[in-house]
Simulated scan of single mutants.
Amino acid sequence: MLPPLDTSDQALVHALQIDGRAPFRRIAEVLGVSDQTVARRYTRLRSAGVLRVLGLTEPLRLGQAPWIVRIRCAPGASAQISTALARRRDTTWINLTAGGTEIACLVRPERPGEGVLLLEKLPGTPRVVDVAAHSLLHVFFGQERSLLTKSGPLSAGQVAALSPRDAPESPPADPGPAFPVDAADHRMFDVLALDGRASVGELAAATGWSQTTVRRRMAELRAAGVLYFDVDYHPRVLQRNFRSLLWLNVEPSRIEEVGRALSAHPEVAFAAAITGDANVHVSVTTPDVTAFYRYLTGPVAALPGILGTGSAPVHRTVKGAGPLWTPQWGQW
């Protein structure tokens, strides 16, 4: 079992969530430790499978149409189906919910139409009982921001010192037209999806660009909200043992207000507007089921314009934010 991280490890993880590509030298200066200490702790955490830094793309900025999909399965079938889904490049955040009888996942097609093809195939898959697909319209909280952003130990001054200058402060309300990218950009995305801290030399080799061009292009992509960096970490890093997905039916005129309010809740790891009767989707993490009950009957119940709620406890996460990762926790 993974023990709690000590204060220094928590500070490092928080720093990486703020800027996954921050040089160890800058992190060390902000944390008041040596470069070697930061490098050693990061290597230890990554080697133990506790965390990894990912470079990911925002599908809405690329003109893609992501979907949040709920799949009800026959008893005993969800593990096999979720494993097959996890092998696909266009799926992320695959969770087994409702005692393992339902799968919830995000489909991020690489090109227009690919996600639709998957959705067309799912209803005919053996032992799939029902499929519900919700188009993701707008992200209120998530992407480069996570629970680590809210609960990390760094001070406001330390956060400001680590915040990247070329990254947008928050997702735009209107992402605008698709940002143009080419084959070399996609090769860079492939490398960063596996290791967000891949060296500029590795990225130059993958793209065929000079290192100067790599740096300039990454800055452009981050500033445009196309490329962001996230930390994929073991759930016990935050010592919160109960996770649930919420589906909220909100009056259309209050969706934006509700989304902003949810973004500030310390329990919320992700919040987005979606299509369907349940038009706001939320991922919640609490210490235990009692804390979840207090959250559901307190802050959620107090939100304006709530017409109905539904929840599905997460039994297991099969795949996280990036490519399929099955780390061995090793000696910790």
Rank of each mutant, 00 (worst) to 15 (best):
E114L: 15
L118A: 14
P164W: 00
L162M: 02
L118M: 14
L137K: 14
G157M: 02
P171K: 02
P153G: 10
S135T: 14
T125N: 11
P112A: 13
L162C: 03
E114Q: 15
E114M: 15
L148W: 06
G115Q: 10
S163P: 00
G152L: 01
L136M: 15
A133H: 11
R111H: 12
F140N: 04
P168D: 01
R127G: 09
P153E: 05
P171H: 03
V128M: 09
A161D: 07
V129L: 15
P164A: 08
P112T: 11
L137Q: 10
E110W: 08
S135L: 15
L148C: 05
A161P: 05
R127Q: 14
P172V: 02
L147R: 12
V116I: 10
L117M: 13
H134Q: 15
F140W: 11
L136I: 09
D166A: 08
D166Q: 03
P112M: 08
G152M: 03
V116H: 14
G115P: 07
S163W: 01
T149M: 06
V116E: 15
V139N: 06
E110V: 08
L117I: 11
P153M: 09
V116A: 15
S146A: 11
H138P: 09
S146D: 04
E110Y: 09
L117T: 10
E144I: 02
G124K: 09
L154Q: 01
P172C: 00
Q143T: 06
S163K: 03
P172R: 01
P164N: 05
V129I: 15
S155N: 05
A161H: 03
L122M: 09
H134R: 13
A167N: 02
R111N: 11
D130I: 08
S151Q: 12
S135E: 15
S146P: 04
E169K: 00
L137A: 15
G113P: 12
T125K: 04
S170C: 00
L137W: 01
L122V: 09
D130P: 06
S163D: 02
H138Q: 14
E169G: 03
A173R: 01
G115S: 13
E169C: 00
P168S: 01
S135D: 13
G157C: 05
A156R: 07
P126R: 04
P172F: 05
G115M: 07
S151C: 08
Q158Y: 03
L136N: 07
G157R: 08
G113E: 09
P153W: 07
P164E: 05
A161V: 02
A132Y: 10
P153N: 06
R111K: 11
P123H: 12
